[in-house]
Amino acid sequence: MSEATMTRESSRGTEARRATIVVGIDGSESSDAAVQWAADEARRRGAQLILLHVRQPEGSVMTVDSRRYGALALRDTVGLLWQQVTALKEQKIDVVGRVDDGSPDQVLIEVSRGADLLVLGAEGTGRHRGLLLGDVAQECARSANCPVVLIPPPRRRPA
């Protein structure tokens, strides 16, 4: 049974499916905002929150920022993910972290099969950074198997 299809006992003794919210994280400001939004939603729903970082295969087209994040050793990526998980657990949120390898849009779409909600940063760190929607957000919005919430990056105040 995957993390996204966990169950729990209901008061009548039958198994009830536990609500699950998956958040794709990539180190962008938009992704960080998505984690906060999803944490609030998980608290409201009593849902489990899964923070998922997808490591892209070697040779992928990435921007400088995403290369910097993607170039972190697996140990470092897991460390950053664990920091987010720990901070959310301190807020009494049922959260787990997960790192998968592959194409981010395809992995997120596959994981969405067992999720009640998929939450993503709208902008991301892809090659078209700055557009209204990043490549991964567009593909997931089109093809995910559950509702998708896209969170914009935080507004920057003019200097």
Rank of each mutant, 00 (worst) to 15 (best):
G130D: 03
Q48C: 04
D26H: 00
L52D: 03
G121H: 09
V99Q: 00
Q48I: 05
L131I: 02
D76H: 13
V35C: 01
D116G: 09
V111Q: 08
R127I: 09
Q83W: 07
L117E: 02
E110T: 14
G134E: 11
I93L: 01
R113Q: 12
Q56P: 02
W37I: 08
D116N: 14
W37P: 07
L133F: 05
S11I: 02
A34M: 04
G59C: 11
A39Y: 04
E29Y: 10
V107I: 13
V136E: 07
L108K: 01
K89C: 06
E9G: 02
Q36K: 15
L80W: 10
I50H: 01
V85G: 12
G59S: 13
E139H: 11
I109P: 03
Q106F: 01
H128Q: 06
Q84G: 07
A38I: 15
Q106Y: 01
T86A: 13
A16D: 05
L120P: 09
Q83V: 12
G27I: 14
D65L: 10
V54K: 05
A47E: 04
K92W: 10
E90I: 06
A115T: 09
Q84V: 05
A38V: 12
A87V: 12
V99W: 00
M62W: 06
V61Q: 12
D100A: 09
R98L: 11
E110L: 12
D32Q: 12
A115S: 09
G121E: 09
P57H: 13
S11L: 10
Y69C: 00
L108E: 01
C140V: 11
V85I: 06
R129M: 06
S30T: 06
R98S: 11
A33R: 14
V96I: 15
T20L: 03
G121N: 08
